[in-house]
Amino acid sequence: MQRIHNAIQLTGLSRDNLADLYAYPTDPQVPWVRANFVASIDGSATSGDLSEGLGTPADKTVFTILRELADVIVVGAGTARAENYGGARTDPQLRRALYDRGIGGHRDGASPPIAVVTSSAALDPGARLFTETAVPPLIITTSTAPADRKQQLADAGARVVEAGGVAITPQGLLSALADLGLQRVLCEGGPHLFGELLAADAVDELCLTTAPVLVGGTARRISLSAHEFRMPMVRRHILLDDDGTMLTRWTRR
């Protein structure tokens, strides 16, 4: 691997190289929470109101390997609606190989489910989340969410999990995932969910892509929370692509 100023040039890295760089801990006993975001140089989390607007080929490459490694992909309901989420499309052979190496993947090669966090269960049962997936989505909701909504989502093929009374705390979310044996967690947004996880000290690492663009406008940052906090992080690696995309991995100190 060619290194440039303590960074790794993405060009030439194999899929196995990337899997090694982003490997989850072996046999985690509690959920290991990884967040993956993209931002512009000036800190915008979206362009045209979508994170997809900031995507680059390098970001897509890492986005894909992170999904291949994960047990579950967690998103907030707003992100699922705005980004028109469907089920994850992964490579069964690669998922089995990653599982055999003990760094992620799945024993049978199955794709990771999309887990949507929604206290109200206010989702469209006709959305791609339910109609374009090989694995039933998880709806992480509350006991006080309307029963008819929860039944509609279950009828659409989802697995509905109650993880709180009126609200879903980060601890409640992770406990529900752990009860399902989903320990390698990949959070793809949005900023409110990520901010809540950060404020609860529940995030183990952040994978951040910096897209080589300036956006301006009033777009949000990647995290939003009610109160400011400071969480020291350690840089694990930097990947550089020829188009200027920079991909970093940070873990808690």
Rank of each mutant, 00 (worst) to 15 (best):
Q183R: 12
V185T: 09
D242Q: 15
R253T: 14
G217H: 10
L69Q: 07
G109Q: 14
L214V: 15
L98P: 07
D201N: 12
N6Y: 09
A226W: 00
V62C: 02
S51T: 03
G181F: 10
G164W: 08
R81E: 08
Q93Y: 02
G12F: 11
A219T: 14
V185H: 01
L69N: 00
G102A: 01
A145R: 00
R107D: 01
F194K: 00
L10Y: 09
V203Q: 03
A7F: 01
D204S: 10
I4T: 13
N36H: 09
Q171C: 03
T248D: 02
M1P: 12
G48M: 05
D201M: 02
R89E: 08
T251R: 14
G172H: 02
T209F: 00
D27W: 02
D242G: 08
G181H: 10
P137H: 05
T79N: 06
I73R: 03
T64A: 14
A19N: 08
P25M: 14
R230S: 11
V117C: 04
I139Q: 06
T218D: 13
D241F: 07
T56G: 00
R34A: 02
V74W: 03
D241R: 08
C187G: 05
A45Q: 06
A154W: 09
A147H: 09
H227F: 06
R253N: 15
T141R: 04
G217W: 02
V161H: 05
D108E: 14
V213G: 08
E228T: 14
T169D: 06
W250L: 12
A156N: 10
D148T: 15
S223C: 12
L224G: 09
V234H: 07
T251C: 14
T118E: 13
D179G: 03
P28A: 03
G86Y: 10
A163R: 07
G126H: 15
E196F: 01
T26Y: 11
A199Y: 05
N17Y: 07
L18A: 04
L138K: 05
R128S: 14
D148K: 14
G87L: 13
K60F: 01
D59P: 04
A163H: 09
P113W: 11
L174V: 06
T169I: 04
T142C: 12
R96F: 02
Y22M: 00
L240G: 03
R15L: 03
E52A: 15
E196V: 01
T144C: 10
G216T: 07
Q151M: 06
I222S: 05
S111Y: 12
H237L: 14
P146N: 13
T218K: 12
D148N: 15
L177V: 08
A110Y: 06
H192G: 08
G48V: 10
T210N: 04
M231S: 13
T64H: 11
S111Q: 15
G164P: 04
G195M: 06
G190F: 00
T251S: 15
L123Q: 10
S175E: 09
D243N: 12
G86M: 12
R15N: 01
A58I: 04
R220A: 15
A147L: 10
C187L: 10
S44P: 07
T133S: 14
L66Y: 02
V203G: 04
D27R: 11
D242C: 09
L98E: 06
A82K: 10
T142M: 12
A176Q: 03
L240I: 06
T11Q: 15
G164Q: 10
I114D: 07
